[in-house]
Amino acid sequence: MTRTDKASPAAHYAMIIDLDRCEGCGDCVVACALENNVPPPNPKATPRTGLNWLRVFRLEAAGRDVFLPMPCMQCGEETPCQSVCPQKAVELDPATGIVGQIPERCLGCRYCMAACPYQARVFNWWDPQWPAGMEQTLNPNVSVRQRGTVEKCNFCHGRWHAAIEKAAAAGGRGPVAYTPACSEACPAQAITFGDLNNSEFAALTNKPESFRLLDSLGTGPKVFYKTASTAVRAAVTGAAKDTPHA
């Protein structure tokens, strides 16, 4: 899985999600599952036991439904899940800033899930199953995870890997540009993906309308949100109490 590419200087991948654009269509959720070989729901699965690497919460604010897509925040400072894993199945790749999960090494103790303040991690409560024949449509670039392991969003690591290989084949070095599935899928272009080492992209995250969830915990999340509406921001950051529906 995540390995440092010593040849390339580091990237610092991050995401900006525009809450004023998202309308909760679910494209990102489906595209994410498709890209990352996440199995269809087990007949008994619920939102609490489901395998969604990217969850979309629905809130009501400013007189409308506000949707909050939540991938893994790829915490860069004192990454809560990484430090607790007893057998190094979670790695923060210094070359990308991506928090990777190594399913082949995961014990399934779920300590990382308890540690994650965003509840971005999901557990394989069941054996993954596809309807007969549908395994032909799995993505060759992403391995299938077993029952009893934890998994989560890795900013479409398979795509990053493919991009790095393509760049290397063309003789390129250094960080590559690529797009995760959710960002490619979004019909409203609400998800912008980029490298914080790119000053133009970094500037977007520094705007006054940009913010991060649970910033005060000091875990350095690399998913930023933005909204021009103070009511929406208040609902999402907890400055005002709204009714959740997710």
């Binding site: 430090s83 607790v84 894993c85 007893p86 057998q87 190094k88 199945a89 090494r105 995961c106 014990l107 399934g108 103790c109 779920r110 300590y111 557990f123 394989n124 077993q146 029952r147 009893g148 392991t149 934890v150």
Partner: peptide
């Protein structure tokens, strides 16, 4: 029984993460 992959329990000795309290516990 509580962990998802008990057959991998010995990985904690093989790839221990010394920063994890669970490693210490184990």
């Amino acid at each position: 029984v509580d962990v998802g992959q008990p057959l991998r329990a010995w990985f904690t000795y093989y790839h221990p993460n010394v920063h994890s309290m669970l490693t210490e516990v184990t």
